[in-house]
Nucleic acid binder design. Structure first.
Lengths: 193, 193
DNA sequence: GTCTATATTTAGATAGAC
DNA sequence: GTCTATCTAAATATAGAC
């Protein structure tokens, strides 16, 4: 009767929820909304995810893992913080354009409000890894010695800000057009000379 | 019977709501919560603000106006973008420490989710004014010529990122300790040399 | 302007057949 | 695993006395 599975139901539920969360926010999206938009029964949702928070958590871990993997791959495939940082920025900007709902959920959503106890994404694996790399680059004399938190914020704060503006509809230019100049600006913050 | 007014009720309602929004978020705060914490009747709240959104909007305009005033004052009292920017950063950092709930509401809350149609704070007067000033500084040769949006993000993205981290409990150092280094980093992005 | 009591709606969640 | 029908709690908002 219901929509036959091109994708399995749990995945379809997650995809639908992510889209609705992006368009309306977590709290403005009811389980009934998800059920309806995903063309799935409400029983199915509760069977797979337990409760509404369960959807949010599954989504969060899925996307955070994805980003962690991307970060480690970028570290492995690029040499030097300058190129690694640029590759990461390109990854973030590209994802914000091609998968805005996912990027918004990772970077803009107020996780603590609907997933109490969940670690902030900023203090989780991918961002930890980057800060660790920044520290290393300082020790190796690749960049200036700065407070690591300030250095991280300086290097990626501008990019993250632009992503926020873009996803909130304030910036109407595709982020890819901003990548080079943004990274040039950011690198000056930490460059040795 | 109820708490006698040291402050007038509307103000007490707003103060209480702001605090609760900060601690739990807008959607996790019910009108009953506000009513109870402010020691005011629910009828009083609806009399003054019409509905829950009305509280949020009053709060928003009040705080945005406050920030607009501060920005214009900073512009008037300081000469040159370097000093003006530093003064603005100091203002933001100080406010994040002394009035975290207000700062959080202005910079971190997802306004569009609970005040549909309201202009984003980032495209409202105070931030408009700053971007205008940045443009002017480019024309006058005080800083490099860059895309204005990128320049704004570069100059204040790091600071705003640190505020987010601080208010989300990720950063445990007072922001005032970070001001000098943060601004030094930021200025390098746009400095002529 | 302020209050209490109440109405209305809708959300999250469960039960139990298939 | 999936479905429909239903329950329950809680939230927003209103009515109307004082």
């Amino acid at each position: 009767m219901k929509n036959q599975t091109t994708k399995d139901r749990p995945q379809r539920i997650l995809d639908t929820a992510l889209l609705l969360f992006y368009n309306s926010g977590y709290f403005n999206t009811s389980v009934h909304d998800i059920q309806h938009a995903a063309d799935v029964s409400i029983g199915s949702i509760y069977h797979h995810f337990g409760n509404k928070q369960g959807i949010a958590r599954a989504l969060y871990h899925h996307l955070a893992d994805q980003m962690t993997e991307a970060v480690f791959q970028i570290m492995a495939e690029n040499a030097g913080l300058y190129r690694q940082g640029r590759a990461f920025l390109d990854y973030l900007f590209a994802m914000a354009e091609t998968a805005p709902a996912a990027m918004h959920y990772i970077l803009c959503a107020r996780h603590q409000e609907f997933m109490p106890g969940e670690k902030s994404i900023c203090s989780s694996k991918p961002f930890e890894r980057i800060q660790q790399r920044i520290r290393q680059a300082m020790d190796q004399g690749e960049i200036r010695k700065l407070d690591p938190a300030i250095a991280s914020a300086a290097l990626f704060g501008g990019a993250i800000r632009l992503i926020h503006l873009r996803l909130d509809g304030v910036l109407d230019r595709p982020l890819s057009d901003c990548a080079a100049e943004t990274w040039q600006c950011a690198w000056r913050c930490v460059a040795l000379q």
